[in-house]
Amino acid sequence: MEVRTIKVFTTVDNINLHTQVVDMSMTYGQQFGPTYLDGADVTKIKPHNSHEGKTFYVLPNDDTLRVEAFEYYHTTDPSFLGRYMSALNHTKKWKYPQVNGLTSIKWADNNCYLATALLTLQQIELKFNPPALQDAYYRARAGEAANFCALILAYCNKTVGELGDVRETMSYLFQHANLDSCKRVLNVVCKTCGQQQTTLKGVEAVMYMGTLSYEQFKKGVQIPCTCGKQATKYLVQQESPFVMMSAPPAQYELKHGTFTCASEYTGNYQCGHYKHITSKETLYCIDGALLTKSSEYKGPITDVFYKENSYTTTIK
């Protein structure tokens, strides 16, 4: 009895394709271990004539594949690729409408935090270190965002349907971005203890939790000093293409032309909904596939993004 075979390709990165001759009487799992086709788990399936010449994702289970996976995804987590594939199996079914010149995501599976993050990423200057993220990001900007969303979920250790947080998501993504040249110098002034300067680099240099107003941050924000008295913390120097200011959701007025974009969060910790506000020729609110415009805006804002380049204080 002759062994019926077909020729397929296996890959971990969709760049390096490895030619395989597979036995049609055995499952993919018996031949390769966990195997995925377009995100779908085909591990328990036997090869079919229609699979001839198709590319299958496999887990990096030998040295060659491990090197290829690390170079593309910059992670050695053995569960990463499987999590990416199972997320992709959902995100490829989502709709990605162009809204006001940006790629958004039609609401499904509690994905409003991903839509808000995706919209924000198209408006701030950011370059990702893992080629996987950078490639998928370019495709997302062009309207094909399924891979990018699935990668975000995998890097953030999230599953489809789980509630997510924009600030946490951005923080994970910033860790995989090139923020080497970003720098922030802060000064804390206390009447009792004097003053202390701190220099922050990388992710810490672009994120701040405690106030939404970048102007206020430049002037000074009140913080408790270690001595128990009130101290003032203010920005001395900022070198970065953008800054992200966050605070627990509270009524906040966004003035046209003073910011790049913002995240609105309605609801409580267990259950809520994100919308995205962007400042173009007027203010726009993007909620999944829905767009509304207004000249002014007041609502429960939790993150505001500002364009920056270089700032030095005039406070002496």
Rank of each mutant, 00 (worst) to 15 (best):
M1W: 06
E2L: 09
E2P: 09
V3D: 06
V3R: 12
R4F: 09
R4M: 14
T5N: 09
I6N: 02
F9Q: 13
T11K: 02
T11R: 02
V12P: 09
N14D: 07
N16R: 07
N16T: 08
T19S: 13
Q20C: 12
V21M: 13
D23A: 04
D23Q: 12
M24P: 12
M24C: 14
M24D: 06
S25P: 02
T27R: 08
G29I: 00
G29Q: 08
G29F: 08
Q30T: 14
Q30C: 14
Q30K: 15
Q31F: 15
F32G: 03
F32C: 11
P34M: 15
Y36F: 13
L37C: 12
L37T: 08
A40E: 13
A40R: 14
A40H: 10
V42N: 04
K46D: 09
K46L: 14
H48G: 10
N49C: 11
S50W: 13
H51F: 02
E52T: 13
E52M: 12
E52D: 14
G53I: 03
K54A: 12
T55N: 06
F56Q: 00
Y57Q: 07
P60L: 06
P60V: 07
P60E: 06
P60W: 08
N61P: 09
D63C: 10
L65G: 08
R66L: 11
F70Y: 00
E71V: 11
Y72R: 12
Y73V: 02
T75G: 00
T75N: 08
T76P: 14
T76D: 10
S79A: 06
F80Y: 01
L81A: 06
R83N: 09
Y84M: 06
S86I: 12
A87K: 01
L88I: 08
L88H: 01
N89Y: 15
N89F: 15
H90A: 11
T91S: 02
K93M: 15
Y96P: 06
Y96I: 02
N100T: 11
L102A: 05
I105L: 03
I105M: 05
I105A: 02
A108V: 05
D109L: 02
D109P: 05
C112Q: 08
L114Q: 04
A115V: 02
T116K: 06
T120E: 05
Q122S: 01
Q123C: 04
I124V: 08
I124C: 07
K127A: 12
P131R: 04
P131Y: 01
P131M: 02
A132I: 01
L133I: 04
D135Y: 07
D135C: 07
D135T: 11
A136I: 01
Y138V: 14
R139V: 04
A142E: 14
A142P: 01
A146R: 02
C149K: 03
C149W: 03
A150N: 01
L151F: 00
L151G: 00
L151W: 01
L151P: 06
L153V: 07
A154D: 02
Y155D: 01
C156Y: 00
T159A: 13
T159F: 07
G161H: 07
L163R: 14
G164C: 07
G164I: 08
D165T: 15
V166F: 15
R167K: 06
M170K: 00
M170H: 03
M170S: 01
M170P: 01
S171Y: 14
L173V: 09
F174P: 00
Q175C: 06
Q175K: 15
Q175E: 08
H176D: 01
A177E: 02
A177Q: 01
A177D: 01
N178A: 13
N178C: 15
L179E: 03
L179R: 04
L179W: 05
D180N: 00
S181L: 08
V185F: 04
L186M: 12
L186W: 09
N187E: 15
N187K: 10
N187I: 08
V189A: 07
C190V: 01
K191Q: 11
T192A: 11
Q196I: 12
Q197I: 15
T199H: 10
K201T: 13
E204K: 14
E204T: 05
A205P: 04
A205H: 01
Y208Q: 14
M209F: 13
M209Y: 10
M209Q: 13
G210D: 06
L212W: 05
S213R: 05
S213K: 03
Q216I: 04
F217E: 04
F217R: 05
K218W: 06
G220Y: 02
G220A: 05
V221K: 05
Q222W: 06
P224Y: 12
T226M: 12
T226P: 12
G228D: 06
G228M: 04
G228Y: 01
K229A: 14
A231Q: 07
T232C: 11
K233N: 05
K233F: 05
Y234K: 08
Q237P: 05
Q238A: 05
Q238I: 02
Q238H: 03
P241F: 03
S246I: 01
A247Q: 13
A247L: 04
P248C: 14
P248Q: 14
P248E: 12
P249L: 03
Y252G: 03
Y252H: 08
Y252P: 03
L254V: 04
K255Y: 08
K255P: 06
G257V: 00
T260E: 12
T260W: 09
T260P: 02
C261A: 03
C261E: 07
S263M: 06
S263P: 03
E264K: 03
E264I: 14
Y265I: 09
G267F: 09
N268Y: 07
N268W: 14
Y269M: 12
C271N: 15
C271T: 10
G272I: 03
G272E: 14
H273S: 04
H273M: 02
K275G: 03
I277F: 07
T278N: 08
K280P: 03
T282R: 12
Y284L: 08
C285G: 10
C285V: 14
C285F: 06
C285A: 03
I286Q: 03
I286W: 05
D287L: 00
D287G: 04
A289Q: 13
A289P: 09
L291C: 14
L291V: 15
K293N: 08
S294V: 13
Y297E: 04
K298Y: 14
G299R: 07
P300F: 12
P300M: 15
P300N: 15
I301L: 05
T302V: 10
T302G: 06
D303I: 03
F305A: 07
E308M: 12
E308L: 14
E308V: 11
E308C: 14
N309Q: 14
T313N: 08
T313E: 10
I315S: 12
K316R: 09
